Simulated assay, not measured.
Amino acid sequence: MAIGDRARLTDWQLTVEARARRTRADLAELEGVAGTDRERRSAVESLAVVDRVLDHRERFWRLPASWWSGWHIERAWRALHEAEVCTAAALPDLAGRLPGLRQRISGLLSEDDLRRQALDTLEPGRPPGPTDRAIVVDALRAAFDASDDAHAAARALRNKMVAAALLLFVVNTALGLVGLLRPEFLPMCAHLPANEQIRACATGAKTPAPLDVWLVQLIGAFGAMVAAVVLLLRRRPSLSPYILIGYQALIKVLLGAALAVIGVLALSAGVAEGLTCITSQAALLLWAALLGYSQQVGTRLLDNYADRVMNHVRPLPDVSR
Rank of each mutant, 00 (worst) to 15 (best):
V313Y: 03
L175Q: 15
A260D: 02
L284D: 05
L47W: 05
A83M: 06
L218F: 15
Q295E: 01
R57Q: 13
T207W: 07
E82A: 15
S46G: 00
A88T: 15
G298Q: 04
W287E: 05
A90I: 12
D5V: 04
E184N: 08
S280I: 01
A43F: 09
E17A: 14
H312I: 02
L265Y: 05
S42D: 07
P315H: 09
G176D: 03
S147P: 00
M225H: 03
V44S: 12
L91R: 15
A266Y: 00
V136W: 00
T203W: 04
L122P: 06
G70S: 03
R8F: 10
G270R: 02
L157M: 14
V44P: 00
I262Y: 00
V53S: 04
K206G: 14
L119K: 09
W68N: 03
E39T: 04
E273M: 04
T276C: 01
P315S: 08
L157I: 02
T10E: 09
G298R: 13
C86W: 06
G70W: 06
S66T: 13
L30T: 11
E123T: 11
E39S: 10
Q281Y: 02
V50T: 01
E17D: 14
H56L: 14
V44Y: 01
A228H: 12
T276G: 01
S66E: 14
P92K: 12
L168T: 04
L63P: 00
A7Y: 08
R21T: 04
Q13P: 01
I243Q: 15
E45Y: 03
P210L: 11
L265F: 09
